[in-house]
Simulated scan of single mutants.
Amino acid sequence: MAGQIPDLEAQVRTGTGKGAARQARRDGLVPGIVFGGDKEPLPITLNFNKLLTMLRAGRFKATLFNLKVEGHDDVRVICRDVQRHVVKDLPTHVDFMRLKRTTQINLFINVEVSGEEECPGLKKGGVLTLVRPEVELVVTAADIPESITVDISGLQIGDSATIANVKLPEGAKPVIDRDFVIAQVSAPSGLASQDDEDEDVAADEVPTTEMGPPDGEEAKD
């Protein structure tokens, strides 16, 4: 489960519009907006370097933050969108949504794998494929997991682990309302190719029977 909720410091953005946003970026800030709840949207700015560090660390959109803005009460928020420069791929604007502890939201949660050392399929040369490195879950704002774990310790070659094999955090459930594959252990490509060749050879080795002369004709010497 997620640990202590990290703080996210921001300042109130006094100006609005494209001109104010451009000036904020020149000052080393990233403009943003906080919306949702029963309050009016709040324009903010964040330190560019600190924001970039958090974005590069990963899981930014799957993290619940305690937003601290001078002159305003602390509020729990989650990032809903990060707009980036089309060429430099750097953040140019960030949208945050206010949350209550009981609010349910959809988030993509990272998948981790356990049991690789014990997996009999891998010991036999099988190859692990993580079909879904992330799974979209409905989670409660107060209980956002950092990740979910799929156990492959019992998989043989050709077996799969599905979402039904994953122990989800209390209150969390998949967005997809059916069982689906998370990871699978496949035969190595060389072995798979050999199996295909063996099947082709078997198909070619169909026994033939001698055909006698047509009815009413005698065989010629």
Rank of each mutant, 00 (worst) to 15 (best):
D198G: 04
P133H: 12
K100N: 15
V69F: 07
L64V: 03
Q11F: 13
I152Q: 01
L122Q: 07
L130P: 10
T16W: 09
V77I: 10
P43L: 08
I5V: 10
I144N: 10
D204G: 02
P145Q: 14
V206Y: 12
G32Y: 01
D7Q: 11
M1E: 12
Q184R: 15
T129D: 14
E40Q: 03
G158P: 07
G126R: 01
V30E: 06
E136L: 02
G121W: 07
A192Q: 10
G125Q: 10
V94M: 10
E118A: 10
A203R: 07
T162K: 10
K18Y: 03
V75L: 00
S186W: 11
E70P: 05
I148L: 10
N49D: 15
M54S: 08
S160F: 06
R84I: 01
P133I: 12
G190W: 02
N165K: 13
P213H: 06
N66P: 01
E199M: 15
D151R: 00
L42C: 03
R84Y: 05
N110R: 14
Q11M: 07
P174Q: 01
G71C: 04
T208W: 05
H93P: 08
Q156N: 15
A24S: 14
G28R: 09
N110L: 11
F180H: 04
S160C: 06
T16P: 02
D196P: 00
G32C: 03
V181M: 05
D159Y: 00
S189W: 15
F60E: 06
G37Y: 11
H72N: 12
D74A: 13
N47L: 07
V139Q: 03
K123D: 06
F60Q: 02
R26A: 05
L155Y: 05
A24D: 01
T208V: 08
M1C: 08
V139P: 01
L67Y: 01
V34K: 02
T14Q: 15
E197L: 11
